[in-house]
Design a protein around this nucleic acid. Structure first.
Length: 392
DNA sequence: TATCCACCGGAAGATGGGGTAT
DNA sequence: ATACCCCATCTTCCGGTGGATA
């Protein structure tokens, strides 16, 4: 009986050496393909060694391009380096703390100040934090992951955070924002005031190409799978496929893990290209299934309308058509329909979640509309998945 | 070249539900 | 009890928009 590192005796796996290596939470020893970003980041942080303030920094890149991994790796290093100094790092994920209020709630907690989780005027939280920070005489580096989520009121967050510096004593105290954004045009969408006071140094994270994905997957396979249980061809296949469609490393690793699970379930000795092919679809399906469960009711209705239209042979249904189909669905479920403006917004939300793909269609005298070009899994499968969740 | 279609998407405001302070 | 705060979700309103058509 083999024992995994964390001590639980476990079922011996033929293929996996350590499954955790193929999960999202795992931070590998090196980050292939991100050498230049790491170098740039460290260079920007270097003033800390001379106890000088650091400019604001912004990471820009789509999901699965290594932004969070780079930050976490450098952070671990720097935190050890500056263990006994007046420099402090704080990581905040804005998908949890998704308003300016909640971010400042967390910032206050750094100094042991407990404010109510809601109800107070924002200025009160700001003032308390400012007082505590300027009294503390530390250099604070705040990492704001997924900073584009509070986009509407996010202007206020960035504006109030970045203007703090001008009121602090620069000799001893400063606040640096390290923002991590998924949307490429994040800066353009900020309002004037926020942009000019934030004004960060930008580090770009382009999607991974096939070679980089291959390096990433090889690293994971060597660490997480047993020797001789996988074909390099399978890895090349996944790398090439993902590079073409998104360059998303998280997804590539998901596919590798799924391929290994499938190979294992089939009692195969080796993970082959065939397993990788099956895993591509299986991951999409798993993703959709997971997403659907957390989708609000009317998002499900809209997705159902889209799946129905696509399944009935209508390629590229537009917003108007989708809305009409949505109306009959809400009637069937005796639900009050939302307006077309809102449904149009929901279609965009589904697209940015990666569940569907859309494209503008310019029809001249027939008008312009946004059309859905594809759904993440075959429409018939989508219908099945949607049918299996309660519509209420 | 002007027209016109079928939406697009920003702005602002309504609504309702979470809360605090006094 | 009253007055205030924050916030997510929708609605209402409305000025664009690109290219096929006349």
């Amino acid at each position: 009986m083999e024992t995994l590192p964390f001590g639980h005796p476990s079922i011996v796996s033929r293929i996996f050496r350590d499954k955790r290596v193929l999960r999202e939470s795992y931070l590998p020893p090196t980050l292939p393909g991100r050498e230049s970003q790491i170098e740039d980041f460290e260079a920007l942080l270097s003033p800390l060694h001379y106890n000088e303030p650091v400019p604001h920094i912004l990471f820009i890149g789509k999901t699965g391009t290594g932004k969070t991994a780079v930050v976490k790796q450098i952070l671990a290093r720097k935190e050890a380096e500056f263990k006994d100094s007046f420099i402090r790092f704080e990581y905040i994920n804005c998908s949890r703390a998704n308003t300016a209020y909640r971010v400042f709630y967390k910032l206050n907690r750094i100094f042991g100040i407990l404010v109510p989780p809601s109800g107070l005027p924002f200025d009160v939280l700001y003032d308390r934090f400012f007082e505590a920070l300027s009294r503390s005489k530390i250099r604070l580096v705040v990492i704001l992951d997924e900073i584009d989520i509070p986009s509407k009121r996010g202007d206020r967050l960035l504006y109030s955070l970045s203007r703090i510096n001008s009121e602090l004593d620069e000799e001893t105290t400063s606040l640096t924002i390290v923002g991590i954004a998924n949307t490429v045009n994040f800066l353009d969408r900020l309002d004037e005031r926020a942009r000019s006071s934030f004004n960060p140094a930008v580090i770009y994270f382009p999607p991974y190409n096939a070679d980089e994905l291959q390096a990433i997957l090889l690293q994971r396979a060597r660490l997480g799978l047993r020797d001789g249980t996988w074909e390099e061809g399978a890895i090349n296949y996944i790398a090439a496929k993902i590079a073409r469609e998104s360059g998303d490393a998280r997804r590539a690793i998901d596919v590798l893990r799924m391929a290994a699970e499938i190979a294992e379930k089939e009692n195969s000795i080796k993970l082959t290209v065939e397993h990788a092919k099956k895993a591509m679809d299986a991951v999409s399906e798993q993703e959709l299934g997971l997403a659907i469960r957390s989708l609000p009711l009317h998002h499900r209705f809209v997705l159902l309308a889209i799946a129905k239209l696509l399944a009935s042979g209508d390629e590229r249904p537009g917003t108007g058509k989708i809305y009409r189909s949505y109306l009959t669905i809400t009637r069937m479920h005796m639900a009050e329909p939302l307006t077309m403006r809102r449904v149009s917004g929901i279609i965009n939300e589904l697209a940015s979640q990666g569940l569907i793909e859309t494209k503008m269609s310019y029809g001249g005298a027939y008008g312009n509309t946004k059309v859905v070009t594809s759904i993440i899994v075959a429409p018939e499968r989508a219908l099945k998945l949607l049918g299996s969740v309660a519509m209420r």
